[in-house]
């Protein structure tokens, strides 16, 4: 077999014995995993296994829910994210959501919103950021003449790329994607996957997906989560995507990815 990854990638995010509770209910159970830098890590698993909850821990979005409590560590580079101010953390760890959620603003304002919130006022610099972000998100050619149109006027796939551009505009290091293509048609989905592949050069990407083929196509590493009888999510198996999808070690992974359960 041909193996292109001779170099073991560096760890970007280290998760150690991470537990998460909604009130008394334990949603994540002792997750320990290293997320490699500048790679695409896909998280798959049946509904309710805590995949989304898990990546929402990386930018502490879970904390918007009042009853959430966590244990264990999540270390970004060398800092524990729970010791970083969430506002600062979210600048470093961007997020793209399941449904495209452009703001009801113009395309330009959608992208300029983040940088502006971080203190950039100079219009010329903002213009540069907007163009650069849109180019990175492979949307520039489609919207360069309509930057003053509403972001909501775009098609679903374009809206999602706009949201990716918006996340890129604040120059994060990690981009979390929570089923970013589940609301899109197949062609738009492939475009997003293509884009993700290009983005990994500069960013560490963690993507949750329901679509096994998507994980197989678009990721370098795969984590398989499952739900225990207590309904707590736990990590079953992790490894190179090529290994997980051709030769998983765990029987549960095997059954899940070959469509026998979940």
């Amino acid at each position: 077999m041909i193996d292109n990854n001779h170099v073991i990638p560096q760890t970007k995010i280290r998760v150690e014995n991470f537990n998460l509770f909604y009130g008394k209910f334990q949603a994540l159970d002792k997750i320990t995993i290293d997320i490699p830098s500048n790679q695409i890590t896909a998280i798959i698993g049946p509904s309710g296994c805590g995949k989304s909850t898990f990546i929402r821990s990386f930018n502490r979005m879970n904390e918007l829910i009042p009853s959430v409590r966590t244990e264990g560590k999540i270390i970004l580079d060398s800092k524990d994210i729970f010791e970083i101010d969430p506002v600062e953390l979210r600048k470093q760890v961007g997020m793209v959501f399941q449904r495209p959620n452009p703001f009801p603003k113009t395309i330009f304002e959608n992208i300029a919103f983040g940088p502006r919130a971080h203190g950039i006022r100079d219009h010329r610099i903002l213009e540069e950021i907007v163009e650069k972000s849109l180019r990175q998100a492979a949307l520039w050619d489609e919207v360069k003449d309509t930057l003053n149109k509403s972001g909501l006027a775009l098609s679903g796939g374009q809206q999602q790329r706009l949201c990716i551009a918006r996340a890129l505009a604040v120059e994060p290091e990690v981009i979390l994607m929570d089923e970013p293509a589940s609301a899109l048609d197949p062609i738009a989905t492939l475009k997003i996957e293509e884009l993700i592949e290009q983005l990994k050069e500069k960013y560490t990407i963690v993507i949750v997906t329901h679509n096994m083929q998507q994980a197989a196509r678009a990721s370098d590493f795969t984590l398989f989560f499952n739900m225990a009888e207590s309904r707590a999510g736990y990590l079953v198996e992790s490894g190179k995507t090529t290994d997980i999808f051709t030769n998983p070690k765990n029987e549960l992974t095997e059954q899940y990815i070959s469509g026998r359960f979940g």
Binding site: M212, Q213, A216, F245, T246, N247, P248, T253, E254, I257, S258, G259
Partner: peptide, 9 residues
């Protein structure tokens, strides 16, 4: 059927 893992092998 997009077989994977054992099915694919």
């Amino acid at each position: 059927q997009q077989p994977l893992a054992h099915d694919l092998r």
